[in-house]
Amino acid sequence: MKYSVTLRVNGKEQKLNLDARATLLNALREILHLTGTKKGCDQGQCGSCTVLLNGKRVNSCLVLAVMADGKTVTTIEGVSSNGELHPLQQSFLSHDGLQCGYCTPGQIVSALGFLNEPWDKTPEAVQIGMSGNLCRCGAYPNIASAIEEIRSSIQEAASS
């Protein structure tokens, strides 16, 4: 059975006619061809498919697209603007917070979500708050420093 679903993806309204079974992840990848969001496990166990749904990070593999009707979705494609890298993307690049790059979009979008959550203002919170994103290449220490650089700069800006 098909359902009409309206998503606001990266600022753009998308009207789709979907199988109720289509996950948000499959809708993004196979129908909207926004393939930056990756399928790593399709079971909510790796974080590669992380997107922001109404501003909160979620595993898009476990969200049915119909459930997201009327909601805003931010994928990795919506993180940079006008060809300019987001500071978080730049930080991943300079800290080499990636190797094969497959988990990277999920890591970056997850980090965006993390920075908006009420975690303790500590580097340890990055380690804990980012443990929903697996990386098999083992880029963790570099990912952690990439995010910590942004987290601490936000904290400094807020306290000055």
């Binding site: 061809h33 393939t35 990756k38 399928k39 990795i76 940079s80 730049q90 991943f92 690049l93 990636l98």
Partner: peptide, 21 residues
Amino acid sequence: IDRADGILKVTGEASYAADFN
């Protein structure tokens, strides 16, 4: 130097096998 394919990877533009349409 920074990873040559880094920008493609941090922007989600790098095309892995399943990403081709």
